[in-house]
């Protein structure tokens, strides 16, 4: 399988996960913040020879309260739509300095993270630009399905029907969030033929999956992209105790397809097709969150139908919403 063709330092079990932290305690994130786990895990496996930029968003504002920082590795803020361009800047600068002998020639990871608003909406063209370069860089889009830092507004990646401060249920319109979730990882993979690695992941489920995807992305080299699904206790309205479960529900229900696209080959890392693991009802996922409290059974059925369609009808489930070719 394609995934085996990558030579990388695979973490083979939870006891083999590096113990040392490079994003450490003392950040202003929510209790049970899954995005904080996403941060912690990527830098843990990337290691200390890494430079990081973080776009404006929760993982910027919550993590760093001035004159303090939870980061042990070098970290820099970048603007909301600058996830891709900041990664290029760091990678290009380091490459030039090494080549010209101005700094020691050694591998240094350049990683940029951005949220769904910054990366999936505003910064999309910058990320596209980054994925067209030949720089070694990794862009991680942590997706908590909202502008979580401005008190939860809908983005292009919010789940259909979700309540946000821009999409409140009303007496006339029960559902204000009528947009279907934008498929960013699939779009980027399909649109950038020379990008060797695109993946989706969830910080804590399945165990090790995300950490190994980060390791693979860095090992493959060139510009790479990982989209993580980050349950948000604040905006999705569930108790922080259940951050892991909510992510697991979302993935097992097939709502959040987990895959890798390695040099043009798709590998499902949690295969929700009926022929494979199958799916749990999306109802279980929706009921567990206050942001869906206003939905009625028909809404749930509609979401279920679209998810079933994605897994059973699309030619490449979860990646490209294409059902085949019509004869001319």
């Amino acid at each position: 399988m394609a995934t085996e063709t990558i030579v990388y330092d695979k973490i083979k079990g939870v006891h083999k996960i590096p113990l040392e932290e490079f994003y450490t305690s003392g950040h202003r994130t929510c209790q049970g913040c899954e995005s904080a786990t996403t941060m912690r895990a990527f830098i843990k496996v990337a290691g200390p020879r890494t430079v990081v930029t973080g776009s404006t968003g929760c993982m910027y504002v919550a993590n760093t309260s001035y004159m303090t920082t939870p980061w042990i590795v070098p970290w820099m803020h970048t603007q909301l739509g600058a996830g891709g361009s900041s990664a290029i800047g760091m990678a290009a600068g380091l490459r030039a300095l090494k080549r010209k002998g101005k700094i020691k020639d050694e591998p240094i990871n350049a990683i940029a993270f951005c949220g769904d608003l910054g990366g999936g909406d505003m910064g999309l063209s910058g990320i596209s630009g980054a994925l067209q370069t030949d720089y070694d860089l990794l862009i991680i889009m942590y997706d908590n399905e909202s502008a979580a830092n401005t008190d939860i507004q809908a983005t292009g990646l919010s789940t259909y029907g979700a309540q946000t401060t821009f999409t409140p249920p009303g007496s006339k319109h029960r559902i204000m969030q009528k947009r279907w979730k934008k498929n960013v990882a699939g779009m980027l993979a399909v649109g950038h033929p020379t990008c060797k690695y695109v993946a989706t992941a969830c910080a804590t489920f399945p165990p090790l999956d995300y950490m190994n995807k980060v390791r693979k992305a860095l090992a493959v080299g060139g510009p790479t992209f990982i989209h993580t699904y980050d349950p948000c206790p604040k905006g999705w309205d569930f108790h922080p105790r259940y951050s892991h479960e909510i992510g697991e529900f979302g993935i097992k229900s097939g709502l959040y397809p987990l895959f890798e696209i390695i040099e043009g080959q798709v590998v499902y890392t949690y295969d929700c097709r009926k022929t494979a693991k199958g799916r749990t009802p999306v109802k279980e996922f929706l009921e567990a969150q206050g942001r869906f409290a206003h939905l009625i059974p028909e809404d749930v059925d509609y979401i279920q139908k679209r998810v079933d369609d994605m897994w059973e009808e699309w030619d490449i489930p979860g990646v490209a919403p294409i059902k085949g070719v019509l004869k001319a």
Binding site: S85, I88, G89, M90, G126
Partner: peptide, 24 residues
Amino acid sequence: AEYIIADSEHSQFEIVKHASSVNA
């Protein structure tokens, strides 16, 4: 020198800003 064709002025300016931050 690295010569990057950016996707917009916003990216163009962010690229050189971050290159400058790593001492380039």
